[in-house]
Amino acid sequence: MPWATRGLRDGIVTTRYPRRPDDYGPGFRAAIRVLQPGVDPVAATELPGLCPTGAIGAAGGRVAVDRGRCILCGRCVEGRPDVFAFDASPEVAALRRASLVVTAGGADADDDDDGAVERARAELGRRVRVLRRSVHIRHVDAGSDGSDEWEVAALTNPVYDVQRLGIFFTASPRHADLLLVTGCGTRGMYGPLVRTYEAMPDPKVVVAAGADAASGGLVHPTYATLGGAGGAGGAGGAGGAGGVGGAVPVDVWVPGSPASPFSLLHGILLAVGLLPRAGGRKP
């Protein structure tokens, strides 16, 4: 009985996100923003060296950060605060891997255009239409450092409480609509990951959570990660690209090291078409 009153003690602690923005974030590292569209040729040769995971590109003086590779260490912000800054908004998930490469203009890389994103959104929207308001998630750890699981598990705590949005975690892949993958993609998890995906009924969507899942992160490449060292294809993954993208068809990419609960939630809602659009109405 004492627990009943204890449960009321702190009132409502649950976020209103995504209906209302949440003010948790200032000073919090969610992503890297590029402040300058271009730099001089000397800087262009130096900037990539700032990054331990090779997330910075400066071809032709045009600065780009691959948030899928970025582990948010902040070395670029420290080294060149005039070019890079931390972005506090946790809404960083993207529908295309290429959209994680950001320039000064935002999520708008060389090989991307609004048309492609719109097409991806429309295609995904058709696929997930039947899932609305009841989404069951199967999580698979494909070689994480352990922190990703904490952030995923946090989604069910009273602060994020994703059940209020009709989002549930399920043990059986047969009941799952959404595959949430964490970790850098190890060779030992390739089989279990693929079999879990194949065991899920259609329609299904895949969310790669965190920089590890998107690119292999700092741990990749080793003899034990997918994509292999030096680009030896191996089981899934191509040409040195790490992460889980070579094992399962990823629909939504969530940056972060690890991806924070709000970023995860943004990615999940993006995947199932439940993000409120500007103007208030749900798509």
Partner: peptide, 20 residues
């Protein structure tokens, strides 16, 4: 299944990257 070869990845890294 989740062996990542982390120890091997340290080899050849600078100390600052090693901390990360």
């Amino acid at each position: 299944p989740k062996h990542r070869g982390a120890a091997r990845r340290f080899a050849g890294m600078g100390v600052a990257d090693g901390v990360l």
